[in-house]
Amino acid sequence: MSQILPQEQIDAWKERVTGHAHPMELVVDVLRAIQAHHGWVPDAGVELAAEILGTTPLRVEEIATFYDKIYRRPVGRRVIHVCDSICCWSRGAEEVVGFLRERLGIGFGETSADGCFTLLPSCCLGACGEAPAMMIGLTTHGNLTPARILAILAAESGEAAP
């Protein structure tokens, strides 16, 4: 994962940008691609996106720092977004957070010692009917109980083994 984005992907993005009437339309896609490959978007990733899009790093940074699902700081191999909005709150989100904190030994914004999980709070995930819920990577898990959380963490850490 030392590489920010494989060369063939860089070339493919550049090709899409060429002749595109509004290259900046792709800024979120490029940042997401970098994040998907590299895990998070380092400064060099912002600079790479700027180069691909034909703009300045600042212009990319203006966008990257607006969205909460673009990580501009290092994260673990899996990012856990725990919903703290009203429906999950009403059904035990605080207990879920407490359990995760204890289990992983980390607080919000921190990464577990093994580098596997980063814990972040999130606004509503659109899983209100299955509250409490959390999202790991791009997958949403609902109806969380301590047992279910343990099973999910085990499966995720197995998949995300370095």
């Binding site: 300045t56 940074e61 607006f66």
Partner: peptide, 9 residues
């Protein structure tokens, strides 16, 4: 100018 702007939210 393209090197100064608004960051964060």
């Amino acid at each position: 100018g393209e090197d100064f702007g608004v960051l964060g939210t």
